[in-house]
Design a protein around this nucleic acid. Sequence first.
DNA 1: TTATCGATTCTCT
DNA 2: GAGAATCGATAAA
Length: 213
Amino acid sequence: MDREFFSQDALYVAPKLLGAKFSVDSAVGLVTLRITEVEAYMGLGTTGPYDPGSHSKDRRTERNASMFSDPAHAYVYFSYGMHYAINFVCSPAGSASGVLIRAGEIIEGRELAQQRRLVRRAESTGAIKEQQLARGPGNVAQALGITRVEHDGKDLFTPPFSLQAPPESPAQILNGPRVGVAGVGGGPQFPWRFWLPGEPTVSAFRRGRNASE
DNA sequence: TTATCGATTCTCT
DNA sequence: GAGAATCGATAAA
């Protein structure tokens, strides 16, 4: 798994990221995530069909600029007024596609991830279950300490990031409609969510608002 | 166990 | 000014 790998489109890259290890270092310590759930988003200049769910479906804007930059970089965006989410940028520079990291298992730096999660839960008592530390895109970013200012546009193979290929290819990969995507982009025409079966860290299936179409 | 709904701020039209 | 690639609490079954 190297820079070259990410010059493919997100649809090709996404399932191959399952089981990969992604680390983020910081002043307070290192957290490593084993990826168990991802989603592919295609965009301008890629080989895929028009993707109505993608931030880069129509044009380059200030927000999605890093999706159009070199592959193997991070695209961090802010969502719903309270969450960050991180994508791995795919496709050659000038074209845009990305893989949203939806969930994973924290295999290093559990305590730090735990602390970061608890900060936001003002009145929560007790620890967060291990399998829930990085379940959902917002929580992944939270556990890894990802922010737009610090990490958007950064190279995935250069500190504070590091990325390792899966030790072995997974026995089975499942796929289905994307979660939380409005309109047809969240429907069965775009079964671009990929996950590892039997992983407790993968979020239970939740229908998108208009996923029934 | 599964579904519904409120919170909260950024980006683009 | 609308709506969003969401989360977590609470309600219902």
